[in-house]
Design a protein around this nucleic acid. Structure first.
Lengths: 239, 239
DNA sequence: CTCGATGACTTTGTATGATAAATTCCGGCA
DNA sequence: TGCCGGAATTTATCATACAAAGTCATCGAG
């Protein structure tokens, strides 16, 4: 689910450079080659390259100044919540440290969102959550499950009625994505978290904020435990 | 504190179009004029315009396709947490509804951040918070206070050690900015929240997460009350 | 008459070359 | 030594041309 169109040429340049920056291949403070040199080395026109640089600049990754050149900005300046930045970080062998931070964000965002949704959801928003839940019930494989699961959590965020909360879905998407890839092979019963989701759904349906918050916390706590188990297993394998 | 450089020409175009989009002057679904026509009407080259469009596209505001044209994307697709988007929304007569959403975000983010900071802060991070606090103490006018206040809350977010949390500072910056402009004239003692900040600082110093969380919650609750008072006064004036 | 393919047209995408503006850095001068 | 100005370099902007992609109408076949 990439925000940036990867088909276009400048989109490929954005992805290429963005990936290399977040992966640490290009470090903060480093200056990029001159625009014409970089354009030539990447086999694109200087025009396409500049459009890519503007996009990276909009995401806070780089900064261009005449004469000085274009340099990588410090990590604190990056739009760490940007969907592309998150996706690039996830793509490049995320460290356990990063996954832990993602989970930490989730633990803050989702219980609060569930509580807010229980307070303010409209009938239509509740219906969206309900639909997603039923798709999870009906899922026949891990692929269908993943899609429905993401829909569920997205619907909860949207039910808060706060568009800034909805924008945080990119974080949830990242952490769930990590979870899916880590548990795809090892889990036989991929629906084991269905009861957790049901509790959240019912609490939101009944407008019970604190019940919804607790249910969501429980779900995430469970998820965190499994994630750590999988991660340990994964590191064992590499020995 | 603009992320996008407003001095450059394409930066001005970004700001112009971005402002008009978030203000609702250009609505989701609307298609922009052709690139060459739009470029001419804005007195810039098509090249500069395209770089601006790429930036807006990176922020999720627009989407361009051959033949179809460039259209405004639905609000759900916008990067609502982007510093520029937030600043543009704040610049254009924010509705009470939007301010309420900002406060809601703050109530979720900052108590959790204070707790995390109390758990994980390094000595250097604590020193940053302490420095900001002393600058608040020493502030001689509302301008100095505002700067120090922002530093304080930024330092707390950074003390969580989670860069995604730090990226949420743009939200805090927006809500505090609104607070400052609304209370600039009406408040005689602009340091009245100093004790609140002191409690947060001390709790973080002593590694007491729950104390820090409560102290931050109290500070925000107080701030919310004042904001509503000011807002009411403001609407009264317009009668 | 309906459906589908085909071709022309419109709009964005990419390339190229040239000029302007800004900033650094060096050298001259007081 | 320190200030000032010019040269050099790099990004910023402009202009033009062509390629690619998608839309829409038109035409033909069933």
């Amino acid at each position: 689910m990439k925000a940036t169109d990867a088909r276009s040429l400048h989109g490929q340049v954005v992805r290429e450079l963005g990936t290399r920056i977040v992966a640490g291949d290009l470090k903060p403070g480093d200056v990029l080659p001159r625009e014409d040199a970089l354009a030539e080395s990447m086999q694109v026109s200087r025009n396409a390259l500049r459009e890519a640089l503007k996009v990276l600049s909009a995401k806070g990754l780089i900064e261009a100044r005449p004469k000085t050149g274009t340099r990588i900005r410090p990590k604190e300046a990056w739009n760490q919540l940007d969907a592309d930045v998150l996706s690039w970080r996830c793509a490049s062998m995320p460290t356990d440290d990063f996954i832990e931070k993602l989970v930490e964000m989730r633990e803050i965002i989702e219980p609060a969102a569930a509580a807010a949704a229980a307070r303010k959801r409209t009938a239509a928003q509740l219906a969206s959550i309900d639909t997603a839940y039923r798709q999870m019930e009906a899922a026949k494989d891990t692929g269908e499950w993943a899609v429905a699961d993401l829909s569920f959590h997205n619907a909860v965020l949207q039910a808060t009625g706060n568009e800034m909360m909805s924008s945080l879905f990119s974080v949830i998407e990242s952490v769930l994505g990590m979870f899916f890839v880590l548990s795809a092979q090892t889990v036989s019963d991929f629906k084991y978290s269905l009861p957790h989701h049901h509790k959240v759904l019912e609490a939101i349906r009944r407008n019970q904020p604190e019940v919804a918050r607790k249910a969501m916390q429980a779900m995430i706590g469970d998820s965190r435990g499994n994630l750590e188990k999988r991660r340990k297993k994964g590191t064992k394998k590499t020995h």
